[in-house]
């Protein structure tokens, strides 16, 4: 197991919890542990034990995934609201 750790805070007003959870599920296989916690206005994600060879990319890719899921979910919700 690698001794790596990454903590990312996603602001609730910009990221939805289910979207961040979806990203955590998607990136779970690449880490020894993924932990989510709601701390004040943030959803704090801690990724542990990932391959250090991933470098910054795992953080960037995780954030992209969470953002994409959030935008898609919000657009769907907006469309449902219009219907």
């Amino acid at each position: 197991m690698h001794d790596t750790e990454l903590v990312v805070a996603f602001h609730h007003s910009l990221y939805d919890l289910p979207a961040v959870k979806a990203a955590a599920e998607a990136y779970g296989p690449y880490c020894a542990d993924v932990h989510l916690a709601e701390e004040g206005p943030d959803i704090v994600v801690t990724l542990k034990g990932f391959d250090p060879g991933y470098g910054d990319m795992i953080e960037d890719a995780f954030c992209n995934h969470a953002l994409h899921e959030t935008i898609v979910a919000r657009r769907e919700a907006a469309l449902e609201g219009m219907a």
């Binding site: 910009l14 990221y15 992209n64 953002l67």
Partner: peptide, 11 residues
């Protein structure tokens, strides 16, 4: 832009 680059939003 998520296809072209890594995007992260903060407050």
């Amino acid at each position: 832009f998520v296809d072209r680059c890594w995007v992260f939003l903060t407050r």
